[in-house]
Amino acid sequence: MAASAHGSVWGPLRLGIPGLCCRRPPLGLYARMRRLPGPEVSGRSVAAASGPGAWGTDHYCLELLRKRDYEGYLCSLLLPAESRSSVFALRAFNVELAQVKDSVSEKTIGLMRMQFWKKTVEDIYCDNPPHQPVAIELWKAVKRHNLTKRWLMKIVDEREKNLDDKAYRNIKELENYAENTQSSLLYLTLEILGIKDLHADHAASHIGKAQGIVTCLRATPYHGSRRKVFLPMDICMLHGVSQEDFLRRNQDKNVRDVIYDIASQAHLHLKHARSFHKTVPVKAFPAFLQTVSLEDFLKKIQRVDFDIFHPSLQQKNTLLPLYLYIQSWRKTY
């Protein structure tokens, strides 16, 4: 089996927390979720979201995140109150960019949308954001926290390059993509939290790379249903696996070995980020709550012996909000 052949990389499970039942964490995340308004986002309300009498641009960002990046939404709820709305805006910006690729039928249209967001970032730093909910909220975040323009532009530029429907040539190319998107998002989150620390940035770099790799793995069944495969070609070739094997949902050992190798790289990034947690300011830990969902996925895929098409991998963990709150309460990542 794939797991038994390579099992030495995987460390002990961390979500089991001995003695936790003896201490009762304060009510927090679930209460916040219940208090949030929840009407559906419609095209009509989106168009009017920044106008008078609408929910408001902040509510639009929150709803977009809740629907399109639920794990990011849950993590954002546990940030300090003064930072929450800015991170909602930042993550909503990322969602807007991420959904361009799947929402257009022609690359030219995707490039036009990316050009809109490039100009939007430029206009935000000229205090002239367009009348668009996410743009307005992002402008507020930039003004409030003096966010670095370079990180925002890196996210747009990398998403634009990724409009080509090509597999990553190697794991390094996937890591570079993750660094310029997910890690950049974390650098900006640290700025919102008021953290300027080399060790925190180092952790953000590795956690962002782990996030990018896990996202690529999780999306494999969806991409396969659209006749697309984006997994690193070098690892596929190493194990003699073709793109057609993934399109046919082949579950042979060599296919699972490909998934094992890729998942192991995410695991190593996560492990390395945690190896120097004592040197990272505690104030930075809330920015890294996504490690909970990353670890949850890596454990699940290990349990199914790296069968990327196993139905259990597509099921939401209903206990994730609780695990996130516990992680926040324990002040760790």
Results as ranks from 00 to 15, higher is better:
47 A>V: 13
47 A>M: 15
49 A>E: 07
49 A>M: 11
50 S>L: 06
52 P>H: 13
52 P>T: 14
53 G>I: 14
53 G>F: 14
54 A>V: 08
54 A>D: 08
56 G>M: 15
57 T>N: 15
59 H>R: 10
60 Y>E: 07
61 C>Q: 04
61 C>S: 09
61 C>A: 11
62 L>D: 04
62 L>H: 14
62 L>Y: 14
63 E>I: 05
66 R>D: 02
66 R>L: 06
67 K>G: 07
68 R>P: 01
70 Y>M: 09
71 E>D: 11
72 G>H: 12
74 L>V: 14
74 L>D: 00
74 L>M: 13
75 C>T: 12
75 C>L: 14
76 S>V: 07
77 L>C: 04
77 L>E: 02
78 L>F: 10
79 L>F: 14
80 P>Q: 05
80 P>V: 02
82 E>K: 15
82 E>W: 15
83 S>T: 14
83 S>Q: 14
83 S>N: 14
86 S>Y: 07
89 A>H: 00
90 L>G: 02
90 L>Q: 04
91 R>L: 08
91 R>I: 01
91 R>V: 02
92 A>V: 05
94 N>F: 05
97 L>V: 12
98 A>E: 05
99 Q>H: 14
99 Q>L: 09
99 Q>K: 07
100 V>K: 05
100 V>M: 11
101 K>P: 14
102 D>P: 09
103 S>L: 09
105 S>R: 15
110 G>I: 04
111 L>T: 11
112 M>E: 11
114 M>S: 07
117 W>T: 01
118 K>A: 09
119 K>V: 04
120 T>K: 03
120 T>W: 09
120 T>M: 10
121 V>L: 10
122 E>M: 15
123 D>I: 02
123 D>M: 15
127 D>R: 06
128 N>F: 12
128 N>M: 13
129 P>M: 13
132 Q>G: 15
133 P>R: 08
134 V>G: 04
134 V>N: 03
135 A>L: 02
136 I>F: 13
137 E>M: 06
137 E>G: 08
139 W>N: 06
140 K>T: 04
140 K>F: 02
141 A>P: 00
143 K>A: 08
144 R>K: 12
150 R>S: 07
150 R>A: 06
152 L>N: 00
153 M>W: 11
153 M>E: 09
156 V>T: 06
156 V>Q: 03
157 D>K: 12
159 R>A: 05
159 R>E: 04
160 E>M: 08
160 E>H: 15
161 K>C: 12
161 K>L: 12
161 K>W: 09
161 K>H: 13
161 K>Q: 11
163 L>F: 14
164 D>H: 14
164 D>W: 13
165 D>G: 10
166 K>D: 10
169 R>V: 11
170 N>V: 04
170 N>G: 14
170 N>A: 06
170 N>Q: 06
171 I>V: 14
173 E>A: 13
177 Y>A: 08
177 Y>E: 06
178 A>S: 13
178 A>Q: 00
179 E>K: 01
180 N>Q: 13
180 N>E: 07
181 T>E: 02
181 T>R: 02
182 Q>W: 15
183 S>P: 02
184 S>K: 07
184 S>M: 14
185 L>D: 01
186 L>H: 04
186 L>T: 07
187 Y>G: 01
187 Y>D: 02
189 T>Y: 10
191 E>K: 05
191 E>S: 07
191 E>Q: 15
192 I>W: 01
192 I>F: 02
194 G>P: 00
197 D>K: 03
197 D>H: 09
199 H>D: 06
199 H>P: 05
199 H>R: 11
200 A>F: 01
202 H>P: 00
202 H>K: 05
204 A>P: 01
204 A>Q: 02
204 A>C: 05
205 S>Q: 05
209 K>D: 00
209 K>W: 01
210 A>T: 08
211 Q>D: 13
212 G>L: 00
214 V>F: 04
214 V>S: 06
216 C>S: 10
216 C>Q: 13
217 L>N: 00
218 R>S: 06
221 P>Q: 12
221 P>H: 12
221 P>K: 13
223 H>Y: 14
225 S>N: 08
227 R>D: 10
228 K>C: 14
228 K>Q: 11
228 K>G: 11
229 V>C: 13
229 V>G: 05
231 L>E: 02
233 M>Y: 06
234 D>T: 04
237 M>T: 10
237 M>H: 09
238 L>G: 11
239 H>Y: 10
240 G>E: 08
241 V>D: 01
242 S>I: 03
243 Q>R: 03
243 Q>E: 04
244 E>T: 05
244 E>Y: 04
245 D>Q: 13
246 F>N: 02
247 L>D: 03
247 L>V: 12
248 R>E: 04
250 N>V: 14
250 N>H: 15
250 N>D: 09
251 Q>D: 13
252 D>M: 11
252 D>N: 10
253 K>Y: 14
255 V>H: 09
255 V>D: 03
257 D>C: 08
258 V>R: 02
259 I>H: 02
259 I>C: 12
260 Y>F: 15
260 Y>T: 05
260 Y>G: 06
262 I>V: 14
263 A>G: 05
264 S>I: 08
265 Q>E: 08
268 L>E: 08
269 H>I: 02
272 H>R: 08
274 R>F: 00
275 S>C: 09
276 F>E: 06
276 F>Q: 07
277 H>K: 11
277 H>A: 14
279 T>C: 10
280 V>T: 05
280 V>I: 08
280 V>N: 00
281 P>C: 05
281 P>Q: 05
282 V>Q: 09
283 K>E: 15
287 A>N: 00
288 F>G: 01
288 F>D: 00
292 V>N: 06
292 V>R: 11
293 S>Q: 12
293 S>M: 13
293 S>H: 13
294 L>S: 08
295 E>R: 07
296 D>V: 07
297 F>R: 02
297 F>S: 05
298 L>I: 12
298 L>P: 00
299 K>M: 09
301 I>C: 09
302 Q>H: 09
302 Q>K: 06
302 Q>S: 07
302 Q>C: 09
303 R>K: 11
306 F>Q: 00
307 D>L: 00
308 I>G: 00
309 F>H: 07
309 F>R: 04
311 P>H: 09
311 P>D: 11
311 P>V: 07
311 P>A: 10
312 S>I: 10
312 S>E: 13
313 L>K: 01
313 L>P: 00
315 Q>G: 07
315 Q>S: 10
316 K>W: 09
316 K>F: 09
316 K>G: 09
320 L>F: 07
320 L>R: 03
322 L>P: 00
322 L>S: 05
322 L>A: 13
323 Y>A: 14
323 Y>M: 11
324 L>V: 08
325 Y>H: 07
326 I>N: 06
326 I>D: 02
327 Q>R: 14
329 W>A: 09
329 W>R: 13
329 W>E: 03
329 W>H: 09
330 R>W: 08
332 T>Q: 12
333 Y>I: 06
